[in-house]
């Protein structure tokens, strides 16, 4: 198992390297921070700009390949992911950003999963009944609603509640109120900030799991081994619960791991709408600020998350399916 993990990780490392490198070239050839510097007042001379960028390791006069070598050298020798045009170090901000994103997503990832799988099972058990139709139609509806718009609608709703109550209960943007005193008030503040994004991401997130779990379970409801279980004397519901359900988890377990990167992208929209300064938002800001190094770093982060997801998927499969257990 360990050997296998090592091998897979090796392959993914190569892939991460390639995608990140490709991303770097894309960024370095299309992002030109100098253009923004020109708009500063007082307007610096091109020589000044070039000089200041050279100091930051962003020399615009070097060709992309030279800059790539310089950039890669920094990472390999000093684990230094470079600097922004304004002089900030990428490494310094990275950890904070990752923390913010993780904090934002973790609750909704878990909620989405639990609710989605539970609803999938519930609706499969009531196939073609009203409950199933309502739940499944909702999931299909979510599929044709773009995430940012969905989040925006939730925001509108939260504002509506605030107005109806006449008092600000929910924050619809931001991460915390600055200068709040620690203890109970800080906790209330935290919840008030968390509630809306978590709610939004959860109710628009579970659709995929619900549909998948429902489908896999239905695929197994009439399987031969369920019939065997019933022939033993289990009722239909017992047979489904004990046999079909367990088998239907196998593909779901796989897909769960694969959706983690999808949450990263989806989360990007959430960060943008709810104004949480996470990785996703950072990457977008980096682009509007023509910041090559930050853009590439966030891209690398995305690839790493993907690789972890894929390896987790393998791992999950071996856990739930005895047929692929490695001795």
């Amino acid at each position: 198992m360990l050997k296998y993990l090592m091998k897979r990780s090796g392959i993914y490392l190569i892939m991460i390297f390639l995608t990140t490198s490709a991303g770097y070239f894309l960024a370095v050839s299309s992002l030109k921070p100098a253009v923004l510097e020109q708009e500063k007042i007082p307007r610096p001379t091109p020589e000044q700009v070039a000089a200041s960028f050279r100091g930051l390791g962003l020399d615009p006069e070097l060709n992309p390949w030279e800059r790539y070598v310089q950039w890669l050298g920094g990472i390999v020798t000093r684990w230094d992911w470079g600097r922004s045009p304004n002089g900030a170090f990428v490494n310094a901000e990275f950890a904070d950003r990752v923390m913010v994103s993780t904090r934002l997503f973790i609750a909704s990832i878990i909620l989405t999963l639990v609710i989605g799988v539970a609803l999938g099972v519930y609706s499969a058990a009531r196939q073609y009944k009203v409950q199933d139709r309502v739940i499944t139609s909702y999931s299909y509806l979510v599929h044709i609603l773009p995430a940012p718009i969905a989040y925006f609608l939730v925001q509108l709703g939260a504002i509506g509640i605030n107005e109806a109550v006449g008092q600000r209960i929910f924050f619809v943007t931001g991460i915390s109120t600055p200068g709040i005193e620690p203890g109970w008030p800080a906790f209330v503040d935290l919840v008030a900030h968390y509630a809306v994004p978590t709610f939004a991401m959860t109710i628009f997130g579970w659709a995929g799991y619900q549909i998948a779990q429902r489908q896999y379970l239905l695929d197994n409801v009439n399987a031969d081994f369920v019939r065997t279980a019933r022939a033993k004397g289990l009722t239909r519901n017992q047979a489904i619960r004990k046999h079909a359900l367990r088998v239907s988890f196998i593909p779901v377990a796989q897909s769960i791991a694969f959706t983690i990167p999808a949450i990263f992208t989806g989360g990007f929209f959430a960060e943008a709408i709810f104004a949480w300064p996470g990785i996703g938002l950072w990457s977008i800001q980096a682009i509007s600020l023509q910041d090559v190094n930050v853009a590439t770093a966030t891209l690398a982060y995305g690839s790493v998350i993907f690789a972890i997801g894929a390896i987790l998927a393998d791992f999950a499969t071996t856990l739930v399916d005895p047929r692929v257990r490695v001795q």
């Binding site: 299309s30 992002l31 990457s283 853009a295 966030t298 993907f306």
Partner: peptide
């Protein structure tokens, strides 16, 4: 397949952003 998976790994959104905001040939 390797190329395919590498492409899947790239977060689409970043590339969208870079390409549409950039000053490259596109």
């Amino acid at each position: 397949l390797f190329i395919l998976e590498a492409l899947i790994m790239m977060p689409a959104i970043l590339v969208v952003a870079v390409a549409t905001s950039g000053s490259g040939g596109l």
